[in-house]
Amino acid sequence: MISKKHIPLAATLAVFALLYAAASVSFEGFFSVRVFTNLLNDNAFLGLAAIGMTFVILSGGIDLSVGAMIGFTSIFIATMIQRYHVNPIVAIVAALAIGSLLGASMGCLIAWFKLPPFLATLAGMFFARGMGLIISMESIPIKSGFFKAIETFGYNFYPVTTIVFLAVVLIALYVAHFTKFGRGVYAVGGSEDSAMLMGLPVSRIKIMVYTLSGFCSALAGIVYTIYTTSGNATAGTTLEMDAIAAVVIGGTLLTGGVGYVAGTVVGILILGTIQTMITFEGTLSSWWTRIAIGGLLLLFIFLQRFIQTRAQGATRK
């Protein structure tokens, strides 16, 4: 018998298994290493953003700025490399620093001034998107040796973007389950008052969560840039919604406190599978992805609602 808190995760896995099985049966060649590898490669940047988002949602917040952050990072790196001939590594480090800083600033607004996360990150989103567009409206292709090398490495061995994603997943698993900070995130999302009374540094945890999300979305922006070998300020438009959807479909409660990084990975795989199925089908168009995501969101939100009401009913006794 699985415990109640594992139901959403089990449901996620079941949905993924069903979808993948259905796709493998319907489409020839779907059940192959190549398709699966591409599944990860095509969604690595979304996955990275969703990992950061997982921590934010676990802490009981939300981060609307991740999509805009990807756009900003992408155009920032491209401009640095192409226009100012900055060393790609320096550009990447700078981008990560900026992402973390923006995340930290939003975290401060949320922790210190008690701004609703929704509003603070909304402002962050406008800011990041605006800054990105100010840098350049046009997309800038990157012709750097470094990026070429990364690409060739990907062809010969394994896509770098996927490696980065998997590495971050491992780190995130460690942070979530084996560090005080990680457990603190769960505690703050579970009950902020109790966490405060138990002596956890609630404000610091919140600020760190948004910093982490800022870092992850900057990293997602870098991966996106590598993936497309170009900078584009409008990259990642409405991607925050997909990231939120992946987290929720991955079994994390939107109210915070319950969920798994591993669930988010499965959530990403589900979104990717739907997209790939639609590509395979050929006659179906991309908008079906959005509709399907919406439907899954609805399903999982109802599931969460149902579990919550039952849990509350149980404790009230």
């Binding site: 168009s285 908008w287 959005r290 995501i293 919406g294 969101l297 609805l298």
Partner: peptide
């Protein structure tokens, strides 16, 4: 918000 735009595109 997520599904609606998909419906419109459909």
């Amino acid at each position: 918000m997520v599904a609606g735009r998909g419906i419109a595109q459909l």
